[in-house]
Simulated assay, not measured.
Amino acid sequence: MTTTRNVHIRKNQHLDVFDRLALVLLNILWGTGISLWWLLLFPMISAPLALAVTVGVLWGWPVGLATAGVFVTGLVLWRRLRPEMFDRWVTRRARTRALTWWRYRRCWVRLMTACHLSIDRGDRTLIPRLLGVQIGAATDRVRVRMLDGHCPADFENRVDHLAHAFGALDCRATITGPGTIELAFRHSDALAATVILPRVDHWTNPKKAA
Rank of each mutant, 00 (worst) to 15 (best):
I45G: 04
I45L: 15
S46R: 02
S46N: 02
S46C: 08
S46M: 04
S46P: 06
A47S: 08
A47W: 10
P48I: 06
P48M: 08
P48Y: 11
A50Q: 08
A52F: 07
V53K: 05
T54P: 00
V55R: 02
V55D: 03
V55E: 03
G56C: 03
V57E: 09
V57C: 10
L58D: 06
L58I: 15
W59D: 03
G60S: 03
W61A: 11
W61N: 05
V63L: 14
V63H: 01
G64W: 03
G64D: 05
A66S: 11
A66L: 14
T67A: 14
T67V: 14
V70E: 04
F71K: 02
V72E: 03
V72F: 13
V72A: 15
V72G: 07
T73N: 04
L75Q: 11
V76L: 15
W78V: 00
W78I: 01
W78T: 04
R79L: 11
P83Q: 00
P83C: 05
E84D: 13
E84H: 11
M85L: 01
D87E: 14
R88Y: 13
R88T: 05
W89L: 13
W89A: 07
T91A: 07
R93Q: 02
R93S: 00
R93D: 00
A94Y: 01
A94S: 04
R95S: 02
R95G: 00
T96F: 12
R97I: 13
R97A: 13
T100H: 11
T100A: 15
W102V: 10
W102D: 08
R103D: 10
R103G: 06
R103H: 10
R103E: 10
Y104A: 03
R105Y: 15
R106I: 11
R106T: 10
C107T: 15
W108L: 12
V109E: 12
V109P: 01
R110S: 12
L111H: 02
L111I: 02
M112R: 01
M112Y: 00
M112C: 11
T113N: 07
A114D: 10
C115E: 09
L117R: 03
L117C: 09
S118T: 11
I119M: 11
I119D: 06
I119R: 11
D120V: 11
D120M: 05
D120A: 13
R121S: 13
R121T: 12
G122V: 00
D123Q: 09
R124Q: 13
R124W: 01
R124D: 14
T125F: 10
T125R: 08
T125K: 05
L126H: 08
L126R: 04
I127L: 06
I127Q: 02
P128S: 06
P128N: 05
V133Q: 06
V133I: 15
V133F: 08
